[in-house]
Every structure is written in C-alpha cells, then in structure tokens.
Design a protein around this nucleic acid. Structure first.
Length: 663
DNA sequence: ACTGCCGACATTTTT
DNA sequence: TGTCGGCAGT
C-alpha cells in the first residue's frame, strides 16, 4: 500500500526563511513597505530616508516570494536610477534582479510602441525626436502661419513646443494650456489649432515620434485596444514607480493602464521634492494618489540617515514655508554637526575664490573632491566657479545644462546614422544635406523631393560629386550595420573636414566625436544606438571619462535638478539670490514660487555633514553692477540655524575661529 | 541661393 | 552664454 500525506498548509507556499534578513536590515517603516502585500501602496519617503533602499529590497522580496523578475516593472525618472537600483538589488540577492524590466516611462512606451505599432497604423521603424529635433519640425510647420500673421509677433518654436507639451502632459485642451501659459497669444488660438494639426500630420507622414508622442500614443493604443492592453498589463504583475511626485497626469493615466490587470502598484515619492512642474508634473498628484488607485496603505518613511540635525533644521525651516503637503517629521540620530554656513561675498569672483580655497582646504582635511558638490539653480550660475577651478587645476565634472549629445557636432554625426535607420527621417536628411558646401535650405528641400522620386530635375552639377560621396557612404553603412564602430570611424573620416570648416574650436569637437566612436561598440546595432542616445542623452561627463579617470575623482558641479537623489559629504549652494532662486520668472505665481522653495529644499537635503549657502552682494550684468538680495527663502532664518561667515582678506595677522582666509 | 557678419536677445530646470 | 533674425556681399 502506498501512502500520500496531504498537507494541512494552504496552497500558497510561504518561504519560511528568506535569504535576506529584511527585518534586521530595515527599520520598521521600511520593513512595512517592503513586505506590504498586493494592491496599491503609497510610500511617502522624505529626503534621505532610504527610498531607493526600500524599493530595491522590495524588488528582492518579490523575487524571493517567487515572482518572476520579468513580471516586475520598475519605472524610474532616469535610466541611470533604474540601473543602479537593480544592480544594488542584484548584489543583495542575486542576478535574477537584473532581469527586472526597468527604465523610464519613455523607454517603456517606446518598447510597447515598437511592438504594437501596426495596431495604430504606425511604422515600427519610427525615429524618436529629441526636443531640439521637435523644435525643428515646429520651426518648419510654423512658417506658413508666421507668414500669414506678418507684422505680428507669432509664437517662437520654443513657445510652441512648451505649449503643445503642456497640453499633452497635463491633459489639457489647447485653449486651456494657452490661457494658462501664454495668454498673450490667445488671439492666435484658431491658428494654433491648425498649426497643431499640421504638426501632428507632419510627424505622422514622416514617421517621426517625439517624447510626448511616446507617452500619448501609448496611452491611446492601450485605451482603444483592449486586447493589447490586457496583454501588456498582464505582464506587469508588480508595478513600482519611483519619484512619484514628478509624474504628470499623462503618466498617471499610463500607470493605471499598465497595472490594469493585476492592480499592484507601489509608488514612492516625496511631495516636498516635486521639482518638475515645468514638465507638467503636478506636485498635488502625489496627494491624490489615494483617489487614483484603490490604496491599501500609505507608509511614511521619516527617519533620515543622511544629514545631521543642524542640516535638517534648515531643511525643515524651508519646508515650513510651504503650504500644501503631507505632514512629515524628519528626524535623525546624527544629532550633532557643524551649523550650516551662510557665506556672503562681495562679488561673484570672491564667491568662486572662497569655493576653490575652501574645497582645497577640505581636501587637506581628508574630504575627497568627489564627496563635495557645488549646486546651483541655472546651468550658467557655475561659469565663474568653473573658470576659477580651471585656473587652479581642480578637476570637476558638471551635470545638467546642455547635454553633449545635443551639441551640434554630435547631432551632425547622429543625423547620418538616423537616415540609415529610418530613410524617411526628413529632419536628419535635411541636416546632413545642409552640411554640404553650397547647399542651403532651398537646395536641400529640392534634393529631398528629388530623392523621393517626385521630381525629374536632377541636382545641380556644382555639388553632384558631393552628393554622390554622401550616398555611397550611407549605403555602405547600411550594408555593414553590424559593424557599428567601424562605420562610425568611416563616418568621422567623412565628417572631420566638414567639422573643421564649420567650427573654430574643431579640435575639441573632433575629440568628442572620437570618444563617441569609441563608446559606440557597446551597441549591437544602430537602431539601439540612436534610440539610447535620444532617450538617455549623455551628460557632461560620459564622453570625457578618459580624462577624468586619469586624475583623481573629480569635484561635482550640478544643477539642483540633476542632483536629485544624490548625496555628498559637503554641499555648497551658490548664487542663492532673489531672482536666481526663486527664479525671476516664478515670482509672480505662488505655485511657481513654492516649487522654487522645494528646489532649495532638495539642494539642502543633499548634504550629509556640512552645508554652505553662498551669495555675492554685487552682481554684474550688461548694464553695470548692482546690489542684490539674498534669496527670500533664507532671508528670515535665525543665525543660530544658519551661521553667517565672515570672509577676511589675508593680513599679516592671522584670524581665528570661523574666519576663512583669502589670498 | 548661400554665406558671413552684426547686433540684439533671452535664459531656468529634463525625458 | 549661444542663438536668432536681418542684411549685404559673393
């Protein structure tokens, strides 16, 4: 006789022992967030409370519970964030974590669209336009409207871009977006409706998709096509969203669609760190999460592991000036530390001198350059410091501001590759034709008509040889698509003389391009290369890694926006002036003003041990020098919270205490 | 038609 | 800071 023992346990297998000791390694709130079961959960994570840590432990926990990694979708703000999180989760558990699908909304949408393009009459081979490409399209489309309204000030391409983008991302009608953002153009409403139509038509005709379309088309696809929606959403057994405070309305709609089958959504964010209103993020969005998703729990992470209490005091003092927020009480066990310093300098140059000298002083004290950051509101606010740092040979990297891949020479090269990938990419064709001597807008347009076979007029003899050379190059690359690096090299040989002619500073640019060529081999094919470089542009550093690797790890200069999620031992916030932060453009609207406040809050909470806020009293401008005021956000702060520093020029006598010497 | 030059200018922040 | 529009010269 055979025996079979029936288990008394229910069918679900509960691993009695996890590989990871969750309870030991996490605090109570984090543990709760990691272990929370199915359904929607919102995690309000104050700055420095271990938000990333919590997310990655949750990923590991889900996998340990038997969920297949590719049924997890992790949506982050940048691709780097996803990569880091999954790498860290991987070292926590094992390599299964790396198979989690992670990336930005734009990446995921691009992926869906490529797969299901045919369902919405889209060619899967579409080219993704970055913001400057999109503006070029707008420039083209707006011409007839500008002509029609001759003599009047018609919206610029950047204005149109802002308008249409707001409309899509915030799910507004054109009229709503127009009256809110650019009421001065309200009388063009009718024209703008037409312009928008021709903008969409142009993109459709030429197989072009811009950043906003990636999201919008995906939404339309999933809303209208139940079969696809079910298929896509069924795959997402767990959806994790990072930086929820910065998602916009359109992205919220997408999350709902992505999670529409299993309805397991965990969102992490901090309403106090919402700084992307300009991109359509609505910082009240996170406050409305419970209305959008059937929320099982709201978990608050309040213990800060990053900063000292004096730094948190300043941060909390800033936050107390905000009006609408989730009540939070950040606390730390790092009770003691230096008081944050307030450094007033006479000029911007003096500010730069102070920074350079103090940073070198810190280095002598054992604080490595890479553990120090200089943060600022606008990319150009660091120009003066950069000069000073260069003068003293202090290595630094700068994040934020213009991306290398948006520089003209890089775009030139990429345009050649783009026509290989998508031969109907007229924007790129136009760009590369115009590079040829003697070809301007007119000839380029004629040539494109001719190439499409819609004209018998052959191109003029003056440049027929050059056209020939170009077409040979393109078709040769087309044949060797798998030899990415080799083709890039070939392309660079073709482009180098053009570059020399076009730019005075060509040696620098050629160097950039050589670096681009050498990094090209990490891509299997051109499609991947083009898509990755548009969706995930290289910021300042990546191209000159060679230079930075040789020297010591560099000091970090960054816009506050790009500093999101990062931390340093010592942080300097510079140019902390009224009109800079808050920006002069935001002072007339309370909502915008609050965002500036949050921005300063984000900056302060990047500091672990020491924080400095600096500003010059005299500002130079084209019209001469004038006196400036410190940011209104710090103006009323007590000296016991933010300690004023006194800068003294070097004299034979040595000063003591909190006085820093300048020489 | 295209190129180059000049002066005016406006400017956040990013996928 | 570079970028944009306008204008004159080739």
């Amino acid at each position: 006789m055979k025996t079979f023992v029936l288990s008394t346990e229910s069918g679900v297998q509960k691993p009695a022992n996890y590989k990871i000791e969750y309870q030991k390694q996490l605090n109570d709130a984090q543990y709760k967030a990691v272990m929370a079961g199915n359904g929607a959960h919102l995690i309000i994570a104050g700055a420095g409370t271990g938000k990333t840590r919590t997310l990655m432990y949750r990923v590991a926990r889900l996998i340990e519970d038997g969920l297949h990694p590719n049924r997890i979708l992790l949506l982050t703000f940048t691709r780097r964030a996803a990569r880091e999180m999954l790498d860290r989760a991987g070292s926590l558990l094992d390599d299964r974590c790396k198979r989690v699908r992670g990336g930005t909304f734009h990446h995921y949408c691009a992926h869906i669209l490529r797969e299901y393009a045919s369902e919405i009459n889209l060619n899967p081979n579409f080219t993704i336009l970055d913001s400057s490409d999109t503006q070029e399209v707008l420039q083209h489309v707006r011409l007839p409207f500008k002509e029609k309204n001759k003599g009047q000030r018609f919206p610029e391409k950047s204005t149109l871009y802002g308008l249409f983008s707001a409309m899509t991302n915030r799910e507004l009608t054109l009229l709503e977006a127009l009256s809110e953002l650019y009421p001065q153009f309200i009388h063009f409403h009718e024209d703008l409706v037409q312009l928008h139509k021709s903008f969409l038509a142009y993109k459709e005709l030429n197989n072009l998709v811009d950043f906003d379309d990636l999201l919008q088309l995906t939404k339309e696809l999933l809303e209208s096509n139940e079969a696809v929606r079910t298929k896509v959403a069924a795959q997402n057994e767990a959806v994790l969203v990072d930086e929820y405070q910065d998602v916009n309305k359109l992205q919220v709609s997408l999350i709902r669609l992505f999670s529409s089958v299993h309805k397991n959504v965990v969102a992490v964010g901090d309403d106090a760190q919402s700084i992307y209103r300009f991109r359509g993020a609505d910082h009240t969005g996170i406050l409305q999460f419970p209305e959008m998703f059937t929320t099982k729990s709201i978990i608050k992470l309040e213990q800060n592991y990053r900063s000292t209490q004096p730094i948190l005091d300043v941060a909390n003092a800033l936050l107390s000036q905000a009006s609408l927020k989730y009540e939070k009480n950040l606390f730390t066990e790092k009770k003691t530390g230096e008081l944050p310093g307030l450094v007033k300098t006479s000029t911007e140059q003096e500010q730069s001198q102070f920074l350079a000298q103090y940073i070198l002083h810190l280095r002598e004290q054992g604080v490595a350059l890479q553990d120090v950051a200089i943060l600022f509101r606008n990319s150009r606010d660091s120009f003066d410091v950069e000069i000073e740092l260069n003068r003293r040979g202090v290595p630094y990297v700068k994040y934020g501001g213009q991306k290398i891949s948006e520089a003209a020479h890089v775009k030139d090269i990429l345009a050649h590759i783009k026509v290989v990938v998508n031969s109907s990419d007229v924007i790129s064709w136009n760009r590369i034709l115009m590079l040829i001597d003697g070809i301007g807008p007119k000839s380029a347009a004629e040539l494109m008509i001719w190439m499409q076979g819609n004209s018998n007029a052959a191109p003029s003899k003056a440049y027929i040889d050059k056209i020939d050379e170009l077409t040979k190059l393109i078709s040769s690359i087309k044949k060797k698509q798998n030899q990415v690096q080799h083709c890039m090299q070939q392309l660079l040989e073709y482009y180098a003389p053009i570059c020399k002619k076009k730019y005075d500073d060509y040696p620098k640019r050629i160097k950039d391009l050589e670096a681009l060529v050498s990094m090209a081999n990490q891509f299997e094919d051109f499609e991947k290369l083009v898509q990755d470089l548009t969706l995930d542009p290289i910021d300042g550093t990546a191209l000159d890694t060679e230079a930075t690797q040789k020297e010591e790890n560099p000091l970090v200069l960054s816009t506050i926006h790009s500093a999101k999620g990062l931390e340093w031992h010592t942080v300097f916030i510079i140019q902390c002036l009224d009109g800079v932060i808050p920006s002069g453009y935001s002072v007339d609207k309370p909502e915008n003003l609050e965002e500036e406040l949050r921005l300063l809050y984000v900056a302060c909470t990047r500091a672990a041990e020491q924080l400095f806020i600096t500003y010059p009293i005299v500002l130079e401008s084209g019209f001469g020098d004038y006196f400036s005021n410190p940011s209104r956000f710090i103006a009323g702060m007590s000296e016991k919270m933010l300690e004023p520093w006194n800068l003294v020029r070097e004299t034979p006598q040595v000063d003591e205490g909190n006085q820093q010497l300048l020489n």
